[in-house]
Structure formats: C-alpha cells, structure tokens
Amino acid sequence: MNPVIGLGAWTVKVIGAFGRMTSFAVQTAVASMRPFRGRRLVEELYRIGVRSLVIILLSGFVVGGVLGLQGYTSLARFGAEDLLGSGVALILIRELGPVVTSLLVTGRAGSSIAAGIASMNATEQLDGLRMMSVNPLGFVVAPNALAMILAMPLLSALFILSGLLGGYTVGSQLLGVDPGRYLTGIETVTTFEDDVAGSLLKALIFGVLVALISTYHGYTASRNAQGVSDATTNTVVIGSVTTLVVNYFFTALWSS
C-alpha cells in the first residue's frame, strides 16, 4: 500500500479509537452515578484491591531491598551511606512506586477486569442485564473502573512503604547503615509538594488510564474465546506501555 494512504488510514483508526473510548468513558461516568452502586463497588474493590495486596507488598519489599543493596554499594564508595534512605525514598516515591504498582495491577487486576467483562459479554450476561433493564455500564463497568481508580493510589502508597521497609531491612539490618540516619535521610529529602503529591497524582492518573483501557477492551471484545484472550492481551500490553509513556511525560512536566 502507498505509505501515505497507510498513514492516513492509521490516523483515522487511531482517532476513531480515541473517540469511541472517550464516548465510552463519558457514558460510563454518567451510568456510574445513576444509581451509584456502593455494594458492587465494594465487591470489585475486594477483587481488584485486596487481592492485589500481597503481590504489591511483596514486590515493593523486594524492589526496596534491591535499591538498598545497589544504593549501598554505590554510596559506600564515597562513604555516603547516610544518603541511602534519601535515595531509596526518592526513587520509590517519585518513580518506581506508581509505575511498578501500575504495571503489576495492570497484569493482575486489569487483565482480570478485561477478561471478566469480555467473558460476561460472550456468555450473554451483559445482554441478560439489559433484559433486566439494568445498564451493564453502571452495573459492571463503572464499579470495576471506580475500584481500579480508588485502589491504585492506595496500592501505590503501600508499595512505597513496603519498599522503604525493604530498603531498611537490607540497608540497616544486613549492611549496617544506622537505622536512625536511614529514616532521617528519608524524611529530610522528601517533601509533600515536590514528591508525595506528584506520586499520588501519578498513581491516580495511572488508575484512570488502566481502568479505561481494561474496561474498554473487555466491553468491546468480540463474543468468543478469541475475543476474551485478545481483550486480556491488549489490556496488558496497551496498559503497560501507556503507563510508561505517560510516566515519562508526567515526570518531565512535573519537575519543570
């Protein structure tokens, strides 16, 4: 095909997809409030938040531990082990916390949302809801999306604290950095305006994006087993790449 035609076709496709996603998001937002389904939200928070907790805490601890290990060996050369807490804290809070949490949650919960909605569509459960005059956007999609948006900052914060604990365990308990100095290092270097607010905002944005990507792919999947598997794969791939790309631009804009 003529590359210009190809580019044009691709552009039309991408713009179309954005349009459909936006319209889907707006419809879901409207449906989420009429009526607001607290019970369903709790159910999905359990599925998405609580059941991601172990993997988040464990990964956070190990990531923090490896930061402690690497940071220590680098800093010890200059006799600056006291900066270990500062280094681990800044890396975790600004970058790794929200990003790794988003990647893990995309793989753990985003894929499950997409597969769940796609298979509900394939087995006519969504049509069944419509037949009961229940809007599936409000009953299925919105609780999933809201739970994802709520859970992401909470999980990210827990990941960061777990990581700081991991860094502490390796740095102070195994390698001998003074525990008080580790903690002081964290406290002095971290500020709410520069680091914590940005970190929470990042996690929230990732939550919104992953929620949208996973529910959209689940909802629009074709009604067969292939559709379910495609929805899952697309969610994980697109969700992860989006997280990384958006993270770069957020960091660039936030620090300027």
């Binding site: 804290a89 809070i93 604290l161 964290i186 971290t190 500020t191 709410f192 914590v196 607010a197």
Partner: peptide, 9 residues
Amino acid sequence: YMSFSLGGL
C-alpha cells in the same frame, strides 16, 4: 504517613 510524616506536610 507518606504525606505528613515523610513529606512533612
């Protein structure tokens, strides 16, 4: 904890 204790809000 992150905001107040670490971030010194």
